[in-house]
Design a protein around this nucleic acid. Structure first.
Lengths: 152, 152
DNA sequence: AGTGCAGATGCAATCCATTTGCAGGTAGTT
DNA sequence: AACTACCTGCAAATGGATTGCATCTGCACT
C-alpha cells in the first residue's frame, strides 16, 4: 500500500468512525479491530474467521461481541451480510457498488459480479407485478468448466 | 377439481410412489400424507406448517419425520427447498419448470416468476469467468408499489 | 485530568431450526 | 406369515446466532 493509499484509507476510516459516533455507536478497541479487519479483507469471512483475525489486535475478543458488532455495522450500512447455502453468514465491507455473487461449490471461493441488464430486467418484472424491489439476492452456484478440471 | 383432473393426479401419484420405491424409499402413512399435502399446496409452507397439514391424515406425526421425509424427497428431486431470508426453510413440489421467487417482505407472500433472458445472461456471465452453473438462486424482496398502499 | 453514564463487553445461558441416537414398529418382499 | 431393512417417535444433541446480566469503558462535559 502506497503512502497516499494509506492516507486515503485513514481519512475514510476517520469519516466512518465519525459517522458511527453520530449514530451513537462507540468505537471500542474490539470495534476498531473489526473495522480494520473488514477494511483489509478482500474475501468474505464468517464471524468466527473475523474473530480469529481481530484477535491479533484484541486477544480474547468474544464471539458475541463479534456478532453484536457485525449486526450493528450492518444496520449502519457499513457492511453486508450474505447467507450463502450451507454456510454460516459471511460478511464484506460495503463501500463498493452493489454486486451479486458466484460461489464455487467445490472451493467455496466467491467471485463478485454485476449485470446492469439483469438488474433492469428484475426491476421490470417486479414493476409489472405491482411491486418495487427493496433488495434482491442473486447467487450462481458454479464449478469450473469441464476443460479446466480432470474427471467428469 | 374435475374427475379427469383427479384421475390424472392419482396416476401421477402412482408413478411417483413407484419411482420412490425403486429408490428404496418406503411409502409409509406419514410419507403418503406429506406427499398429498405437498401435491395440493399452492404456497410455500415450512416444515411446521407441513406437519400441521399432515396431521389431518396422520395425527401425531413427528416433526423429525417431517424433516427426514422432506430431506429424502428433496434428494429424490420430488420437492425443492428454499431458504429465504429470516425464515425457516420452505418447500414446494418440484413438478413445474424452474422458476425464481419474489417475496413480499410485508406479507411473506411468495410469487413465482421466470425470465429466460435473465437465465441466459447468467449463463453467459458464468461462462465468461470459466464456470458452469450448477444451480442458482434469485430472490426479489419487494413491497407493493406506493400507489397500492396508503402511508409512505 | 476527573466524572457520569449510556452503551459495550464477556460469559454463560438461551433460542431456534434442524439433525441424530436409539429402541421399538412396519412396509413390502419372500 | 415371516423376515428384515427401513422408518418412526421421542428425547437429546447440534450449530449458528442472540441475549441477560454484572462489570467495564468511551467520550461528552466539566
Amino acid at each position: 500500500m502506497s503512502q497516499t493509499d494509506r492516507t486515503k484509507t485513514e481519512k475514510r476510516a476517520k469519516r466512518l468512525t465519525g459517522a458511527l459516533r453520530g449514530a451513537g455507536v462507540r468505537i471500542t478497541r474490539q470495534r476498531a479491530a473489526l473495522l480494520d479487519v473488514l477494511a483489509v479483507a478482500d474475501d468474505h469471512p464468517d464471524a468466527v474467521e473475523l474473530q480469529r483475525r481481530a484477535e491479533v489486535e484484541v486477544p480474547g475478543i468474544s464471539l458475541s461481541t463479534v456478532y453484536r458488532t457485525l449486526t450493528s455495522l450492518e444496520e449502519q450500512g457499513v457492511i453486508l451480510r450474505h447467507q450463502f447455502e450451507g454456510t454460516p453468514a459471511r460478511f464484506e465491507h460495503a463501500e463498493a457498488e452493489h454486486h451479486d455473487h458466484i460461489i464455487d461449490i467445490d472451493t467455496g471461493e466467491v467471485v463478485e459480479f454485476c449485470s446492469e441488464r439483469i438488474e433492469r430486467l428484475q426491476a421490470e418484472i417486479a414493476a409489472e407485478l405491482g411491486y418495487e424491489i427493496v433488495h434482491h439476492r442473486m447467487e450462481l452456484y458454479v464449478r469450473a468448466k469441464r476443460a479446466d478440471r480432470e474427471s467428469g
